[in-house]
């Protein structure tokens, strides 16, 4: 049975990484969950692009960071921070679609 990511993750967040990038962190509750997600590539470019309706080419990196049991996804910001049409200067409220991830 598919389970929701909130069972496995204790931190799910987004933030600017400079004014031109947006970065997402998912920190898992345990090493086991981290390994499970990593080995099964639950977080991958294809699913992330679909989740946010962006081209895969806009996904800069997906990095698995073992010291924090975390995965980090960095994407191109739709516009630079504060440019016309901005909705979230700090980029801190772009994480909610990640709550829909199942594993």
């Amino acid at each position: 049975m598919k389970r929701n990511i909130t069972e496995a993750a204790k931190v799910i967040r987004s933030k600017n990484a400079g004014p031109y990038e947006l970065t997402f962190d998912i920190m898992f509750k345990t090493k086991e969950y981290f390994e499970h997600f990593k080995e099964n590539k639950v977080i991958n470019k294809k699913m992330f692009a679909e989740l946010y309706k962006i081209p895969e080419a806009d996904i800069m990196t997906i990095v698995w960071f073992a010291p924090a049991n975390a995965v980090k996804v960095t994407i191109k910001r739709p516009i630079s921070s504060g440019a016309p049409g901005e909705t979230d200067i700090y980029g801190a409220q772009q994480h909610a679609p990640l709550f829909n991830i199942e594993f």
């Binding site: 931190v11 933030k15 600017n16 990484a17 400079g18 990038e21 970065t23 962190d25 920190m27 800069m60 990196t61 990095v63 960071f65 010291p67 924090a68 049991n69 975390a70 980090k72 960095t74």
Partner: peptide
């Protein structure tokens, strides 16, 4: 904690390594 320190290394960065 190891976790809080390591987690912070991720903060606002493109690639934590």
């Amino acid at each position: 904690t190891c976790e809080s320190a390591a987690a912070h290394t991720l903060y606002e960065k493109t690639d934590p390594y």
